[in-house]
Design a protein around this nucleic acid. Structure first.
Length: 567
RNA sequence: CGGGGCGUAGCGCAGCCUGGUAGCGCACCUGCCUUGGGCGCAGGGGGUCGCGUGUUCGAAUCACGCCGCCCCGACCA
């Protein structure tokens, strides 16, 4: 490709609306342009990168025996109503009607459609297992699209779905995907971590997320540095940091006045005891029923663990009027002592503690010497979010919390869709069984974004060669010099013949402009034809390290090829 | 959905407070010049000031309403 003929609209200045590095650079480097909130035009460079990414994904999916399909993005409501997700998806689903006023939606994911295909055709155990996948556009009406291509309303996803006779078959399919995902992300040049994840609204038993550590991410993951422990914060478990020592003895609860002191910090500062000596009391409402959640003062409630425990899809904090009615006091003076009218759930970190401080259920008063299990009864469960400084439950090593973005997710779905949608096959005894399913996604644009987030510098993108729109640029420094042009053309043709993906910067620009643009868009290698051509030398430049070396013209392409293969 | 910010040329911004017929830098076009890290000189094109209503002799500027985009939070298979 000749740069002079291409549409690569680079910008000298950073567009004001872009906050995160990948968004800024995708715009500045001329990869994308925004159409509307969460909708982007992928220009030539983005499209080239995406094609390289999807080619890698296809190769690795095909390598585990997965079969690619292409499914409608426009779905009839009925299929989604069968699984129950027509209602569950709520406002996140784009919905529309056809000319006959029939309901449709734009597909957010394709479990329903894949299961629909399967139940229509799969009859016998002899046809299983199956791995089906698609690389297609998905639509989600995100409440808040943001961060460039990181959270958008239309995006490309590789989704695969597996059908197996039994759990052992699903385990095998899951393991194959896990391994394939590692190969895909390795080949894309990413640094990533596979973490244990919460299965979320998808249901199912086991789940891993593939995460790239980045401040641009929206998730938090918990990592143990020595061991291999890595989990999503939603799901992570830990031993809490050591609390302050409790006063000894079988002391009776004793009321004291705490006027205007509401938060744990305030009460703690007021009574001189550390937050770890306090009990945090939260009144929640799950399907109209109140629940009292108790945590150590320095801990945060884990919504995921709590919803899992309560067996509901969501709960809400009680309104002030409800709190007053149920507890007889304002939030800020709440506690478990004497509470009889609701379920009480206490975090495990409170088990075995003595003589703590809690609200008195009398506005402006707290109790000291409150002992869990003696002064009040509660169910003890892990309902707490892991905090920085916690330690691993078995190795005891310190845990770190890291911000990260999700690029892939694998699930053991179980029977959720095969059951609800009536997928049955006959086993070898002629008995009807429900196949077990798995679902496995990769966000294609997120691979591009995370590569940029991971690999960029002040001059622009440092794209991994495997997914760069071009992997080498041949740059004659002066387009008026026929010898330079001829040499550059020849190198460009050699590079093409060698199977590289070269770009010829034949623009009539000053060298500085060409260098800066090539650095910005992230071409990993550059062959510069300049003044040393007379001595038979060209310059080889490595974007990542900014290293430059003179090499004989005849060896330049072979050298670049070797560098790309080594990358 | 709650909180905040912004909307003036392709991009980045000034002008708005104190109303008087729109400006700067970059980009773009033409010519000359230059050619190893965003050259220089000269000339030039491009704007319903997000939309609507109102106030006023007069609105980018003041008031009200709406729309759009961004950020924080909530939400997020």
């Amino acid at each position: 490709m000749r740069w002079s003929k291409l549409f690569i609209p680079t910008l000298r200045e950073t567009p004001a609306e872009a906050e995160v590095a990948s968004h800024q650079l995708l715009l500045r480097a001329g990869y994308v342009r925004q159409l509307s909130a969460g909708l982007y035009n992928y220009l030539y460079l983005a499209q080239r990168s995406i094609l390289k990414i999807t080619a890698i994904v296809r190769e690795e999916m095909d390598a585990i025996g997965a079969q690619e399909m292409y499914l409608p993005g426009l779905n009839p409501a009925e299929v989604w109503q069968e699984s129950g997700r027509w209602d569950v998806m709520g406002a996140n689903m784009f919905r529309l009607k056809d000319r006959w006023q029939r309901d449709y939606c734009l597909g957010m994911t394709h479990e329903e459609i894949m299961t629909y295909i399967a139940r229509g055709e799969l009859r016998s155990y002899k046809q299983l297992p199956q791995i089906w996948y698609q690389i297609q556009t998905k639509f989600r009406d995100e409440p808040r699209p943001k961060s460039g291509l990181l959270r958008v309303r239309q995006f490309i996803m590789k989704d695969s779905y597996t059908f197996d006779m039994d759990a052992a078959g699903l385990d095998a399919a899951y393991d194959k995907h896990y391994a394939a995902y590692c190969r895909i992300f390795d080949r894309c040049g990413l640094k990533y971590t596979a973490v244990e994840a919460h299965s979320g609204a998808m249901g199912g038993s086991q789940s891993h997320e593939f995460m790239v550590a980045s401040d641009a991410g929206e998730d938090f993951i918990v990592i143990g540095e020595q061991s291999k422990y890595a989990a999503n914060l939603e799901k992570a478990e830990s031993n809490p940091a050591q609390p302050a020592a409790d006063p000894d003895g079988a002391l009776a609860p004793e009321e004291f006045h705490t006027p205007g002191q509401k938060s744990i910090e305030q009460v703690s500062a007021f009574d001189g005891m550390p937050p770890t000596s306090h009990i945090k009391s939260l009144v929640l409402v799950a399907e109209t029923k109140p629940v009292l959640a108790l945590l150590r003062g320095d801990h945060q409630l884990s919504e995921t663990k709590m919803t899992g425990l309560l067996g509901v899809s969501e709960y809400r904090p009680a309104h002030p009027a409800e709190i007053e009615q149920w507890m007889g006091a304002e939030a800020g003076s709440l506690g478990p002592v004497g509470v009889k009218n609701m379920r009480i759930v206490a975090d495990l970190a409170l088990k075995g503690r003595r003589n703590m401080i809690a609200g008195a259920n009398k506005t402006g008063y707290h109790l000291r010497n409150v002992t869990p299990g003696e002064d009040f009864q509660a169910e003890f469960h892990d309902i707490r979010q892991v905090a920085e400084g916690d330690t691993h439950t078995t190795t005891g090593e310190p845990l770190k919390i890291v911000k990260a973005m999700e690029i892939g997710h694998i699930f053991k779905l179980g029977y959720k869709y095969s059951e609800s949608m009536g997928l049955r096959v006959l086993d070898e005894h002629g008995k009807e069984v429900t196949p077990i399913m798995g679902s496995y996604g990769i966000g294609i644009e997120r691979i591009l974004c995370s590569a940029i987030e991971l690999f960029h510098d002040a001059d622009g993108i440092v794209m991994p060669p495997s997914i760069a729109p071009f992997n080498v640029v041949v740059t004659p420094v002066n387009t008026k010099d026929a010898n330079l042009i001829a040499a550059a053309e020849s190198l460009y043709n050699q590079a093409k013949a060698a199977g590289l993906d070269p770009l010829l910067d034949d623009r009539n620009e000053r060298p500085g402009v060409k260098f800066i643009d090539a650095d910005l868009i992230g071409i990993p290698f550059r062959i510069t034809c300049g003044k040393k051509l007379a001595e038979g030398q060209v310059e080889l430049y490595i974007r990542k390290t900014k290293e430059k070396m003179d090499v004989p013209v005849a060896e330049a392409v072979a050298k670049v090829k070797a560098l790309i293969e080594a990358a």
